[in-house]
Measured scan of single mutants.
Amino acid sequence: NQASVVANQLIPINTALTLVMMRSEVVTPVGIPAKDIPRLVSMQVNRAVPLGTTLMPDMVKGYA
């Protein structure tokens, strides 16, 4: 199973992502692939993302 990107903490709306905010985990449904973590750094979330939430492409500005 492919690992997805999961929030390692509460990420407030419009926050630029950093490595410490994200972890990889095998979850259902599948979200953004963990291999894309380096690409996500500095991108902003367009909503508040609670701890443990799988990041989906529509949550990150400029990803999709």
Score class of each variant (00 low, 15 high):
Leu19Asn: 10
Ile13Tyr: 07
Ala34Met: 12
Gly31Asp: 01
Gly52Phe: 08
Ser42Pro: 02
Thr53Asp: 13
Ile37Cys: 13
Ala34Cys: 15
Arg23Trp: 03
Asn8Phe: 07
Leu55Arg: 00
Thr18Tyr: 03
Leu55Ser: 01
Asn1Phe: 07
Met56Ser: 11
Pro29Lys: 05
Val27Met: 04
Val20Gly: 11
Ala16Lys: 06
Thr53Cys: 13
Pro57Ser: 14
Ala48Val: 12
Val60Gly: 01
Met21Tyr: 05
Ala64Gly: 12
Thr28Cys: 12
Ala48Trp: 05
Met21Asn: 08
Glu25Trp: 04
Ile37Ala: 07
Ile37Thr: 10
Leu10Gly: 10
Leu10Cys: 13
Arg47Gln: 12
Pro12Arg: 09
Pro33Asn: 13
Asn14Ile: 03
Gln2Arg: 03
Thr18Asp: 04
Ser42Gly: 13
Pro12Lys: 08
Ala3Lys: 04
Arg23Met: 08
Gln2Met: 10
Arg39Phe: 06
Val5Ala: 10
Met59Gly: 03
Ser4Val: 02
Met59Phe: 13
Val60Thr: 01
Gln44Trp: 05
Ala48Ile: 06
Gln9Pro: 01
Leu40Tyr: 03
Gly62Glu: 11
Leu40Gln: 00
Val5Trp: 01
Ala3Thr: 11
Thr28Lys: 04
Met59His: 13
Arg23Asp: 11
Arg47Asn: 12
Ala34Ile: 08
Lys35Gln: 15
Val5Tyr: 00
Val30Trp: 06
Ser24Arg: 04
Thr28Gly: 07
Val27Ser: 08
Asn46Ile: 14
Met43Cys: 05
Met22Glu: 02
Val41Glu: 10
Asn1Asp: 15
Ile13Ser: 12
Val27Ala: 06
Met43Gln: 07
Asn8Pro: 02
Asn1Tyr: 08
Gly31Ala: 03
Asn8Val: 13
Gln44Cys: 10
Leu40Val: 06
Ala16Ile: 09
Val26Asp: 15
Thr18Ile: 05
Asn8Ile: 05
Pro50Leu: 05
Asn46Ala: 11
Lys61Gly: 11
Ser4Asn: 00
Glu25Lys: 03
Ile11Cys: 03
Ser24Asn: 09
Asn46Phe: 10
Ala3Val: 05
Val26Lys: 03
Pro12Gly: 13
Val5Lys: 00
Thr53Ser: 13
Leu40Trp: 02
Pro33Phe: 11
Thr15Lys: 06
Pro57Asp: 10
Pro12Ile: 04
Asn46Arg: 10
Val45Ile: 09
Ala64His: 11
Val6Asp: 00
Met21Ser: 06
Pro57Thr: 14
Arg23Ile: 14
Asn14Lys: 04
Asn1Gly: 15
Met56Lys: 07
Thr18Arg: 05
Met56Ala: 06
Ser4Gly: 06
Ala7Tyr: 01
Gln44Phe: 09
Val5Phe: 02
Val27Gly: 03
Leu51Ala: 13
Lys61Leu: 12
Lys61Trp: 10
Ala34Leu: 03
Ala7Cys: 06
Gln9Phe: 12
Asp36Val: 04
Leu19Thr: 06
Ser24Thr: 09
Pro57Lys: 08
Ile37Ser: 04
